[in-house]
Simulated scan of single mutants.
Amino acid sequence: MYIKKILLIIALLGILGLAGFSFYIYKVIFDANTAFNEETVEIYVPTGATYTDVKEKLAPLLKDGEKFDLIAQKKGYTGNVKAGRFILKRGMSNNDIINTLRSTNAPVWVTFNNQERLENLAGRVAQQIEADSLSLLRVMQDSAFLQENNFRERNALSMYIPNKYQFFWNTSAEEFRQRMKTEYDRFWNQERQKKAKEIGLTPHEVMVLASIVQKETAKVDERPKVAGVYMNRIQKGWRLEADPTVIYALKDVNQNFDTIIKRVLYKDLKIDSPYNTYLYRHLPPGPITMPDITSIDAVLDYEDHDYFYFVADVQNFGYHKFAKTLSQHNANKREYVRWINQQRINR
């Protein structure tokens, strides 16, 4: 009888011990283990990161790193680290955190516009995804890829349509480039290709002309009218004589794209560059900036009118005065020159 009581006590103690241990494990797995006050925090895990790297990033965010480490080992996360951007919520348990790091790579929105060169674009994109600017620029300038897809380095910027795109943060440079090629093909659908053909331009030429329109006016509602001026000149076989192309030519010749040029001088019109549309009749070899969709569609749906000239309207800033004849234009131009001289803008 005495032995039975001892065995019973031992059994009860075992059950209590097991229950206590189970309760401890339950708390380790499911109790909140975050140490931040914000609603959410982001953690970026680079490609090739180890579990040690992740622990270092998590250390200031956790109440108890050892308990997290225990569950991470039990769940096999220590040998299966995934790269990406992960969002942790205040009050998450170790189980929640590990599940998030294993399977909930949160995408980022990537935006870009108004980039003048591939170098600028690569720098802008590198601020938003894991790939660095050098690797992005390398694949953007890759001659084999460009040739295969009917691009040259001078017009490769055309392939990147400004918009807002969703990517995983750990997207590689090659993956980014391929996605942009897919978006370019999607943008240049049958309808837009048909419109380009109807106005006698290739998609590449549309992008170049759209970049000039983009630089000429920031007013979206004026862009089809400006595009109409240039289409009239093209159809007449005239030189485009677009000041923004001269500005780009100056920057390109001097290899200084940080230069701010507010006024084009007569001597600038003689600069020998394929981008100088005062000197050469053809379109520049590539876009002088990254045209946005409104500028591209402004060219494809340009306004049909009889204007051949325009100059900045000093009475309605941001817009332009349009003229059908050179004499009308010269009168408008004199008004603009008087104003710009009054502002003492020499360059």
Score class of each variant (00 low, 15 high):
52 T>I: 05
53 D>T: 11
53 D>H: 15
54 V>T: 12
57 K>W: 02
57 K>D: 10
58 L>T: 09
59 A>W: 06
61 L>H: 05
62 L>Q: 04
65 G>R: 09
66 E>A: 11
71 I>Y: 15
72 A>L: 06
72 A>T: 03
72 A>K: 03
75 K>A: 14
76 G>H: 13
77 Y>C: 08
81 V>S: 08
81 V>A: 11
83 A>W: 05
83 A>V: 06
84 G>R: 02
85 R>M: 09
86 F>Y: 15
87 I>P: 02
87 I>V: 09
89 K>H: 12
89 K>M: 08
90 R>V: 07
93 S>H: 05
94 N>V: 03
96 D>N: 12
96 D>Y: 04
100 T>M: 02
104 T>E: 15
107 P>W: 00
108 V>E: 02
108 V>R: 05
109 W>R: 06
112 F>R: 05
113 N>F: 00
113 N>K: 10
114 N>V: 00
114 N>M: 01
115 Q>S: 09
115 Q>V: 01
116 E>L: 11
118 L>H: 07
122 A>M: 04
123 G>K: 13
125 V>G: 02
126 A>H: 08
126 A>V: 07
127 Q>I: 01
128 Q>E: 13
130 E>P: 10
132 D>G: 10
132 D>R: 11
133 S>G: 06
138 R>T: 13
140 M>E: 09
141 Q>R: 15
141 Q>E: 15
144 A>I: 09
144 A>C: 04
145 F>E: 13
148 E>Y: 04
149 N>Y: 13
149 N>E: 12
153 E>F: 10
155 N>M: 05
156 A>Y: 06
157 L>G: 07
157 L>V: 02
158 S>A: 12
160 Y>W: 10
161 I>V: 10
162 P>R: 05
162 P>Q: 06
166 Q>W: 04
168 F>V: 02
172 S>Q: 01
174 E>G: 04
175 E>H: 00
175 E>I: 00
